[in-house]
Simulated assay, not measured.
Amino acid sequence: MILNEYGNNIRRCIEHYENLPFDVPQNWAWTTLGNIGKWQSGSTPNRLNKNYYGGNIPWLKTGDLNDKYVTYIPEYITEKALDETSVKLNPKGSVLIAMYGATIGKVGILTFPATTNQACCACDVFDEIERMYLFYFLLSHREEFLRQGGGGAQPNISKEKIVNTYIPIPPLAEQKRILQKIEALFVAIDKIAEEL
């Protein structure tokens, strides 16, 4: 399964991946995370340049990720920083994952356009992929990313490791059914927790 550069449609083709984690139903397909959206990592504008900070463009650090929708980011950069540095603006709905340190594997979904630091990778998901499907996949894959990050004082995973990770993709209608089931289970868990 390959998604076109602009994410407007999806076309099937035969790809031969080796060592796939498990078999999937016939109407599903294996691909890599790099094929389901446009991925980019962020940047930190020079802290010594005061003209780069205090503007109106949200700038997310991985500590701002909360494993759910990102509704608040405390720090802002300026248009000048966006124009003069390698920092990139990610659109609303981008799925984020932390790549470094104590926050490695933390995820979030932007509820507004925002930039990020270099410790964060963002995916602008193509049309035939439900962003929450990607979100839950990344969440479920956290332990694997932690393992890949190594056991050092500052573990990290690279954007390359992320985009080369295999993901099973069901048809869009099946993605929606899976998400409905996940949400129903979370509601049931919350109800049980309230009754304890």
Results as ranks from 00 to 15, higher is better:
residue 179 L to H: 08
residue 151 G to I: 05
residue 122 A to P: 02
residue 46 N to V: 07
residue 80 K to L: 15
residue 118 Q to N: 10
residue 194 E to K: 14
residue 68 K to E: 14
residue 108 G to H: 06
residue 110 L to F: 09
residue 84 E to P: 02
residue 190 D to L: 07
residue 165 T to R: 09
residue 109 I to C: 11
residue 22 F to A: 01
residue 20 L to H: 01
residue 112 F to S: 06
residue 141 H to D: 11
residue 135 F to V: 08
residue 74 P to S: 02
residue 125 V to M: 06
residue 187 V to C: 10
residue 23 D to N: 13
residue 108 G to E: 03
residue 170 P to E: 10
residue 137 F to Q: 05
residue 81 A to W: 04
residue 135 F to K: 06
residue 25 P to Y: 02
residue 28 W to F: 07
residue 130 E to R: 13
residue 9 N to K: 13
residue 158 S to D: 03
residue 153 A to I: 06
residue 186 F to L: 12
residue 21 P to S: 07
residue 76 Y to K: 14
residue 146 L to F: 07
residue 8 N to K: 13
residue 55 G to R: 01
residue 78 T to D: 11
residue 178 I to D: 10
residue 31 T to M: 13
residue 57 I to L: 04
residue 187 V to G: 03
residue 120 C to Y: 00
residue 110 L to Q: 09
residue 148 Q to D: 10
residue 22 F to S: 00
residue 26 Q to T: 10
residue 79 E to W: 03
residue 182 I to M: 04
residue 140 S to F: 11
residue 196 L to I: 12
residue 8 N to W: 11
residue 55 G to W: 00
residue 27 N to V: 04
residue 36 I to V: 15
residue 102 A to D: 12
residue 189 I to K: 15
residue 22 F to N: 01
residue 142 R to P: 05
residue 5 E to V: 06
residue 3 L to V: 02
residue 24 V to K: 01
residue 64 D to W: 00
residue 34 G to F: 00
residue 29 A to Y: 01
residue 169 I to A: 04
residue 43 S to G: 14
residue 86 S to T: 11
residue 145 F to M: 15
residue 149 G to P: 01
residue 141 H to R: 14
residue 58 P to N: 08
residue 71 T to Y: 14
residue 118 Q to M: 06
residue 174 E to K: 10
residue 98 A to I: 09
residue 34 G to A: 04
residue 40 Q to D: 14
residue 60 L to R: 00
residue 70 V to Q: 09
residue 80 K to N: 11
residue 192 I to M: 13
residue 181 K to A: 14
residue 59 W to Q: 00
residue 67 D to I: 00
residue 116 T to L: 03
residue 127 D to T: 06
residue 187 V to E: 15
residue 119 A to I: 01
residue 31 T to K: 08
residue 27 N to P: 04
residue 119 A to E: 06
residue 102 A to C: 05
residue 187 V to S: 10
residue 6 Y to V: 04
residue 117 N to R: 03
residue 173 A to K: 12
residue 41 S to A: 14
residue 54 G to K: 01
residue 55 G to C: 02
residue 33 L to S: 02
residue 46 N to P: 00
residue 152 G to I: 04
residue 88 K to F: 05
residue 125 V to W: 01
residue 138 L to K: 05
residue 98 A to R: 08
residue 127 D to R: 13
residue 8 N to P: 00
residue 112 F to V: 04
residue 45 P to A: 03
residue 53 Y to Q: 08
residue 16 H to V: 10
residue 101 G to D: 07
residue 169 I to Y: 05
residue 105 G to T: 07
residue 64 D to G: 00
residue 134 L to N: 07
residue 19 N to T: 01
residue 17 Y to K: 09
residue 101 G to W: 02
residue 126 F to T: 07
residue 131 R to S: 15
residue 164 N to L: 08
residue 145 F to E: 06
residue 115 T to A: 15
residue 56 N to H: 10
residue 40 Q to M: 10
residue 10 I to V: 13
residue 127 D to K: 14
residue 99 M to E: 12
residue 148 Q to I: 11
